[in-house]
Design a protein around this nucleic acid. Structure first.
Length: 589
RNA sequence: GCCCUCGUAGCUCAGUUGGAUAGAGCAAUCGCCUCCUAAGCGAUAGGUCGUGGGUUCAACUCCCGCCGAGGGCACCA
């Protein structure tokens, strides 16, 4: 609809240009918008206001000239000039009614488009370190990332969803060592567990598996493990350095276990946790096309290749035994180390290689969804891509702010290390998948979010998830009632009888239904799924209002048929919209 | 100190990228089931859009300065 009006305006502009006395070199694409107020019609354009100055005329005069030459269209009932020079379009009622058969015919395709034209987009999200279960902060990234990906797919992009698995590096060594130490405790060794180790119960579980499968085969006397290890940092006391302590323990584990047995602890920890994360996300309705291993990057030589490319283009230098990337040349605030003094590549080096690899895989756009605490990381990654000669603007980084959980007015703590966190799994168990998915995307991603557990759980009108789902169930319920009364519903999409839909509530509903494809497009292109949840609430409200004002199963068969067709269309759109945010559409509640 | 994000009704948040009289939901008050699910609907009330300037036909929206909240500034990941 919006496009058709834009086309009409373009045609009008062309005619004015043909008439001469215009004084404009190029014609703008008219901005057509939905009106906020129904008294201003359905669509409006500010075209005359924008053009008045360059055309050296008064806005209202220009608007009148434009309206005079506008081509006729069955879509439009009338056109009005209002205010300082807005042109308001009032759509013909039939144009709206025609929407019903269009929606019913399109079914789950209604709202989808080919805007993306099959262009390939990668969306990388969650990518939490496999050092523990996902917590509620990851949950927001998961729900948001999945919704962004699904929205992009809905408007015709070919979307590749990816999880970057940080299966290399020090954090993983800390996990492996934590598992081993817990195992030693199970063997009966007296261990002072390091303050920097992973203390969650899941580490005990993994250690128990190790103990069950290998009995004492990995056992080493505690005294031997801690021999020569610098003291740990102790709360309240002036002990040693906790980082030095854990690093020495990692070295001891590698040395005392030897390569094979250490590797086994490492892999056991990694695989157990990764399996848990995969299952967790799958149960959350989040699927990936690829789980991309950080370790595989180094094994394939991608990291070295990236560093070589930087070296060849003269963007790295050595200092203090380390290799530095001159990111300041590309707007970063300081240069960054890529190879440490000890010869190990940094996490950043892997990330350069990873992003290089993403672009090499031919994605037209690459979207990273990160926690807001990583925002300082954006300039250096973009700097690296630019230095490699790639187009850094192909990368979009979307930052997701933290979700703060409230239960009974109290803040819930979360920290992977302490073990006192609320996991995504616990959240799903408590409020259910539907509420969690919906709540997570109700807010703009850069908005700090208060996640009210009590509200998400409540099965009441306060809860927006139930409100929207109820609209769907309500339509289903009406159909069940019809069946009980022996009313046969005409299976065709129906273009007859629709002229009987003359009520204000019906017009309002049609108007909202017509907006759906526009909402999907805006939400997809702007990466703003909250526009969709807001829309769904409005649509549900229109349906509930209509339900309260008018009986659907009326004796007049023609009117009844028309009304049923309308609510079937509403049901279809609610279903389509909920699917895009990963929420079910129940038949009954 | 520098950088990023945010500041809109008592609370939680929208605001279609600069448009017309700033909107929802909770909470408050008052109504609506002999009727397709009251998990619903209607009405009332609630605002100096943090603040001070600037840009223009037009600013919640863009620019600058303050104030406040959160986060980031590693040879960690």
């Amino acid at each position: 609809m919006k496009q058709q009006i834009t086309d009409l305006l373009c045609a009008g502009l062309a005619r004015l240009t043909a008439d001469g006395d215009w004084g404009l070199d190029e014609l703008p694409v008219p901005a057509v918008e939905r009106t906020k107020d129904q008294t201003h019609g359905d669509f409006a354009t500010n075209l005359a206001l924008v053009l008045a100055k360059p055309a050296r005329t008064r806005p209202r005069d220009l608007a009148q000239r434009l309206v005079d030459v506008l081509p006729d269209s069955s879509l439009i009932e009338r056109v009005e000039i209002a205010g300082p020079g807005f042109i308001n379009f009032f759509l013909a009622a039939d144009a709206y009614r025609a929407l019903i058969p269009a929606i019913l015919t399109a079914g789950h395709h209604y709202g989808r488009s080919q805007l993306g034209a099959g262009r390939r987009v990668q969306v990388e999200f969650v990518s939490a370190n496999p050092t523990g279960p996902l917590h509620v902060g990851h949950g927001r990234g998961a729900a948001y990332g999945a919704a962004v990906a699904d929205l992009l797919a809905a408007v015709g992009y070919e979307v590749h969803r990816e999880y970057y698995v940080n299966d290399a590096g020090r954090q993983m060594d800390i996990l492996a060592t934590s598992v081993w130490l817990r195992y030693l405790e199970l063997c009966g060794e007296a261990i002072n567990f390091p303050s920097n180790g992973y203390k969650g119960d899941y580490v005990w579980d993994i250690a128990a598996t190790l103990h069950r499968e290998h009995a004492d085969a990995y056992r080493v006397a505690a005294a031997q493990v801690f021999a020569g290890v610098p003291p740990d940092e102790l709360p309240g006391l002036d002990g040693g350095d906790k980082e030095d302590h854990i690093d020495a323990l990692i070295a001891a584990a590698k040395h005392l276990l030897g390569d094979n047995r250490y590797r086994y602890c490492f892999e056991l920890g990694l695989n157990t946790i990764l399996d848990d994360i995969r299952a967790d996300l799958a149960e959350f309705g989040v699927e990936y096309q690829e789980w991309y291993s950080e370790r595989s990057l180094a094994e394939r030589g991608a990291v070295n290749r990236a560093i070589e490319r930087l070296r060849e283009s003269g963007h790295v230098y050595e200092q203090g035994g380390a290799l530095w990337f001159r990111s300041t040349a590309f707007g970063d605030e300081k240069d960054r180390v890529v190879v440490r003094e000890n010869g190990q590549g940094t996490y950043f080096a892997s990330d350069i290689a990873y992003h290089m690899d993403k672009l090499e895989r031919g994605f037209e756009r690459v979207i990273d969804i990160w926690g807001a605490d990583h925002h300082g990381y954006i300039p250096r990654v973009k700097a690296a891509l630019t230095a490699l000669g790639d187009d850094a603007s192909r990368l979009d980084v979307l930052l997701v702010q933290f979700a703060i959980l409230y239960r009974g007015g109290e803040r819930a703590q979360m920290s992977t290390r302490s073990g006192e966190f609320v996991t995504l799994r616990e959240l799903r168990k408590e409020v259910g998948r539907d509420a969690a998915r919906f709540f997570y995307v109700m807010r703009r991603c850069e908005q700090h979010m208060d996640f009210d557990l009590d509200l998400a759980k409540s099965q009441s009108a306060d809860n927006p998830v139930y409100y929207v789902q109820y609209a769907h169930a309500r339509v289903c319920s009406v159909l069940r009632q019809a069946a009980d009364k022996g009313i046969v519903i005409d299976p065709t999409p129906g273009i007859t009888n629709l002229e009987l839909l003359t009520q204000d509530h019906e017009q309002a509903l049609l108007r909202t239904l017509a907006r759906y494809p526009e909402v999907i497009e805006l939400a997809a292109i702007g990466h703003e799924p909250h526009l969709l949840t807001t829309y769904l609430r409005e649509l549900a409200n229109d349906l509930h209002t209509y339900y309260n004002a008018h009986q659907f199963l009326v004796p007049d068969a023609n009117l009844r048929d028309a009304r049923i067709k309308l609510i079937l269309a509403v049901r279809q759109v609610v279903r389509n919209g909920l699917a895009l945010v990963g929420v079910s559409a129940p038949e009954a509640m």
